[in-house]
Design a protein around this nucleic acid. Structure first.
Lengths: 224, 224
DNA sequence: AAACATTTGTCCGTATGTATA
DNA sequence: ATATACATACGGACAAATGTT
């Protein structure tokens, strides 16, 4: 019986992993509000596990910056400063740009074509206004570039940053625009010319664009 | 009785923190060898605490990439690939360069002078051949620049990367050269001119220099 | 193939420490 | 200032899963 490749570890995930994923999702989508107190016993009951895996998950979320822990005092969801999007995008852009520069030297024409198809779907999602799906496809696009670098230091950091960006986008009601799809096409063109420096430039501005989106948005949503 | 300022939280650190710091130090300096199996019960005994704080520390070290955990099977010190220095320095250089660019716009002349004094001491340490101390001062120099960015996303990532770099330097017997002190002086000059782009360029090449040191070193230490 | 030995994962009780009355 | 209430930190025992004999 043929087993689908890349599906090697469907390991029934541990209680800790379940707790981690669920809690992270709740924090990102706002089910657990910023500043909300997190009582491990309570959460354990809600998740149907004991306090230990919950506490372990909370500690991981703590190092990732989603949970604030005051030893012996309290554990709570970190507050959100909407302006943090301005702080996190520059380092994320720098790493994504570096990844693009590295990927440009190794990407195959077949892989470029696959990304092109992905980007088509991304554009359609944007046109249809399906922003959550579009965001997912955008992450897939950049994730593929990260994969090509074969560099776990870049990959793990970017993945962590992305989670925060998702939360901040959600909080700030930022949605991607069609410009993003155009950027992606220009990135692919640079890849075909093996022009790593140019690819890096476009990737950087692609990410920094969201800073402008934030400011444009903030002007309308903020009280004067 | 006067209490030294900046010593606000001498909180007797928790068992978990002690375990974390001790284990990380042991891994970085090679006391715990790459690939070595980590039995939590055994470590708990050695550290005089129970398994819980040890397990928690191991999980933090896991997300930081110093410990590999195979659920239900084993936990061990991550293997070292000396060539990883080639993988980690580019993203670290990118972030440090970004930090320098941001810092250039805000640093005061007083702070520049303080860094200049620090760099003098750094140069002396290099001349005396006190490489561990020199490395510490080098980290302090760049750490001060990071502080100026007031950006926790950059700070926490860089700090994590630095720990790995320490381990890789140790493993590869890489030591900094006098060129580094010269770089620092040029960085400070760029700061004085408020030339962020130039400061970023120098910082990047300052870090990437160690890649060359690695290759120069590897040629001699490797068996043919 | 089945039972064993070892290690990890989980549970929950207790103690310690902090903030409040 | 003392005491009280609460949440967190830690401990030790049990259960589950894995690799081995």
């Amino acid at each position: 019986m043929p087993i689908p490749a890349g599906f090697s570890t469907p390991h029934r995930l541990s209680a800790k992993q379940r707790a981690f994923q669920q809690l992270q999702e709740w924090i990102i989508d706002g089910t657990l509000r910023p500043g909300e107190k997190l009582n491990d016993g309570e959460l354990a009951g809600a998740l149907g596990v004991s306090r230990t895996p919950v506490r372990e998950a909370l500690q991981l979320l703590n190092v990732e910056g989603f949970v604030e822990m005051n030893p012996g005092v309290s554990t709570q969801v970190t507050e959100i400063d909407g302006a943090d999007i301005v702080k996190i995008l520059p380092p994320l852009a720098a790493l994504q740009a570096l990844a693009a520069e590295i990927a440009a030297a190794r990407i195959s024409s077949g892989q470029i074509e696959a990304l092109r198809r992905l980007n088509l779907e991304f554009g359609e999602a944007l046109d249809k206004g399906d922003y959550p799906y579009a965001l997912k496809l955008d992450e897939e696009f950049h994730g593929a570039v990260i994969e090509l670098t074969d560099n776990s230091y870049i990959a793990s950091t970017v993945s962590m940053f992305q989670a925060h960006v998702r939360r901040l986008f959600f909080y700030n009601s930022i949605v991607l625009t069609r410009d993003s799809a155009d950027d992606h096409e220009r990135i692919l063109n640079a890849f075909e010319r093996r022009d790593g420096a140019e690819a890096a430039r476009i990737v950087r501005s692609n990410w920094l664009r969201s800073i402008d989106l934030y400011y444009a948005n903030a002007r309308h949503t903020q009280a004067p």
